[in-house]
Structure formats: structure tokens, C-alpha cells
């Protein structure tokens, strides 16, 4: 019960249907105050719908949304103290940067001087104060992203909701903004719920992660747990890109015996191609050097196995077309049903 007092957001048995199809089924999750919580899953898994239900932009067919111990299920978005950072930023094109950020405070009838002070302080924080009087339509994607974040932070919401905020940025800007986001969140200490389909992003940013598939939560836990102790093969595949071996292959290749119907689940970095006597049962079909790592694809019994090894300042040992076997690098390989 101690834990419950610090919960900022609780979703209890949330279900939602669209045109007779279950989009969300009995979702339960709790987000602690100050926590960075991610909801990750493939596109179409229902994560954006869940976010919109938390914000009050959609209403659940069943279940409750509790924000700061207040049942907010029937509340309109205006009544909830939640802010959203939209995927397309949703900046008001008819306003300047300053006006966009001031909007939420004007709504609350805040004093003009206080608005000014707060807006500039936030713009300073996201490093865009030099463009305060510029129309938002002239900003670059990264800048729009920062204004959109500033617009939410300035209202000091109980909860910030992020709807894939980095997906419209290019790769290097995405990494940069990711670090920036983490820093701002830590400094402001605002509870965040972050929706993404990018599992690396979720792992890097979050205190805890919920993995969602087909409207059902597959696993909730800290990034380490979700990565190393997946509860089912969907989580293992989606978060860790794991390789799966059935009982026959597991016994034949790694000498690990598991029951029929079970699967041995091996992360790409836990398996390495090897050569030598009696080990040419596989075929290297692809070798990709990415700089810090080498990614091998090995075909064994019509199954493609991924192996990723740090490149370690030497040329890849194998090239495509080579015969090779596999060696397990861990003693803690997971067995899943």
C-alpha cells in the first residue's frame, strides 16, 4: 500500500474496441511519480490509443484512469493535468514560438508578467529563446520538437505524454534529441509516459517499460529485465531480436536439452560462428560490418540465425559463403514456452 501513495498514474483494466475489434484488452499499469515509463510495441499494437485514453482524447469502454489518486476516467482533456508532445508536434501555425508556449498559461489566466518569465525560462531550457518571436512554420523539425516540449513543460503538468516524438527526426538528430529529452525530464522531474515502436529508444530512456502487442501487455519491467528476462517469445523477439531454437536443434547444436515444445532463446550477442572439425553444419549467408560490430547471418537447417559481435579492431573472421557452426557464449540462455 505504501507504493500506491506515490503512484502518479494508474490504468485499471482498460479495454477499448473500435468497430468491434479489440484494440486494448484489460490493460493494467502503474506509473510512479517522477518515473520515465515507456510503452513499446509494433505499429498497430494499440499504444497510441492507450496514450490518448490517458490524455482523455478517447474514452475507454471499460476500466479506470486514476491520476494522482483521483479517478479521472470521465474527465475531458481540459480537466486533466496531462500534457502531450505529439508525433507531428501540433504547433499552432498561426502563432509565434512565444505565443505557442504562452498559450497553455493564458488559458489558465496567468498574470502577463509571470507568463513572460515562465515562457522565457522554459525557452532558455530547451535552447530556443533566440527564436521566440519567429513563426513556428519557419522552424526546422528539431526546433519544432523543442518548442512542442517547451509548450508542455511550461504548464507544469502532472504527467507528460509523448507520442513517438522522435520518429519524424533524422537519425543523428534523433540521438541528440533523445539525450536532451532525458536531461530535461530528469531536471524537471516530471512523470513521463513515452510511446514508441523503437525498442532501443525505450531501453535507453526509460526507468520502466511495458511491452504491448495486439492490445495486450506482454511484460512490464525495467529495461534490463525486459531485455535479459523476457517472459515470452514476443518480448524476446521484439526487444532483443532473439534467435529461437527448438528442442532438437538446441540439443544437436548446443548440447542443451529442453523439453519438446519449449524454445531456447538466444540473443544475437550470445552466439558466435565458429569453424573447425564437425562444425561446418551451417552456412554464413551474410556478413555486415557496421563499425563497432559485425553482424553475421548463419543458415542452419533452413533457419536464419543472427549473431552480432563487437568488431574488436580486426577484420571479420568469416565471409559470406563460408561454412561454420555456432557456439553459445552464455550459460544463462533462456528457456521459453
Amino acid at each position: 500500500m505504501q507504493r500506491k501513495k506515490t503512484a502518479c498514474l494508474e490504468a485499471v483494466n482498460i479495454s477499448k474496441k473500435f468497430n468491434g475489434t479489440n484494440v486494448l484488452t484489460e490493460i493494467n499499469l502503474t506509473v510512479e511519480k517522477g518515473e520515465f515509463f515507456s510503452i513499446v510495441g509494433p505499429s498497430g499494437c494499440g499504444k497510441t490509443t492507450l496514450l490518448r485514453i490517458i490524455a482523455g482524447l478517447e474514452f475507454p469502454d471499460a476500466g479506470k484512469i486514476i491520476i494522482n489518486n483521483i479517478d479521472s476516467t470521465g474527465f475531458t482533456p481540459q480537466k486533466r493535468k496531462t500534457g502531450i508532445v505529439f508525433q507531428n508536434y501540433a504547433l499552432f501555425p498561426n502563432m509565434t514560438v512565444y505565443e505557442n508556449v504562452a498559450y497553455g498559461l493564458e488559458v489558465k489566466k496567468t498574470d502577463k508578467n509571470i507568463i513572460r518569465e515562465k515562457v522565457y525560462s522554459v525557452l532558455e531550457k530547451v535552447q530556443i529563446s533566440h527564436k521566440s518571436d519567429v513563426s513556428v512554420t519557419t522552424l526546422s523539425g528539431g526546433e519544432q520538437q523543442r518548442v512542442s516540449l517547451a509548450r508542455v513543460i511550461v504548464t507544469e503538468p502532472d504527467l507528460i505524454l509523448f507520442d513517438e516524438p522522435l520518429s519524424n527526426l533524422d537519425y543523428s538528430l534523433r540521438l541528440e534529441t533523445r539525450n536532451e529529452l532525458k536531461r530535461l525530464q530528469r531536471e524537471a522531474g516530471i512523470t513521463s509516459v513515452y510511446v514508441t515502436h523503437d525498442q532501443t529508444e525505450a531501453l535507453a530512456l526509460s526507468d520502466r517499460i511495458a511491452v504491448l502487442n495486439n492490445g495486450v501487455i506482454q511484460q512490464t519491467g525495467n529495461p534490463f529485465d525486459v531485455y535479459y528476462n523476457p517472459e515470452n517469445s514476443f518480448v524476446a523477439g521484439f526487444i532483443g531480436h532473439s534467435n529461437f531454437f527448438n528442442d532438437v536443434m538446441s540439443g544437436d547444436i548446443f548440447n542443451v536439452s529442453i523439453k519438446p515444445g519449449e524454445k531456447l532463446c538466444v540473443l544475437p550477442e550470445e552466439v558466435i560462428p565458429v569453424s573447425g572439425e564437425g562444425k561446418d553444419y551451417g552456412l554464413i549467408t551474410d556478413v555486415q560490418f557496421t563499425g563497432f560490430s559485425v553482424e553475421y547471418t548463419v543458415e542452419i537447417r533452413n533457419q536464419l540465425i543472427k549473431s552480432i559481435q563487437s568488431s574488436g579492431n580486426s577484420k571479420p573472421e568469416f565471409s559470406a559463403g563460408d561454412k561454420a557452426g555456432l557456439k553459445l557464449l552464455t550459460s544463462k540462455a533462456r528457456i521459453l514456452k
Binding site: 490524455a55 482523455g56 486533466r80 504547433l91 498559450y103 497553455g104 488559458v107 509548450r151 504548464t155
Partner: peptide, 8 residues
């Protein structure tokens, strides 16, 4: 929606 979530 953005306007609504900002309380308007």
C-alpha cells in the same frame, strides 16, 4: 487536441 490538453 493539443489545445484541449493545454486546458483550453
Amino acid at each position: 487536441e493539443a489545445s484541449q490538453t493545454l486546458g483550453a
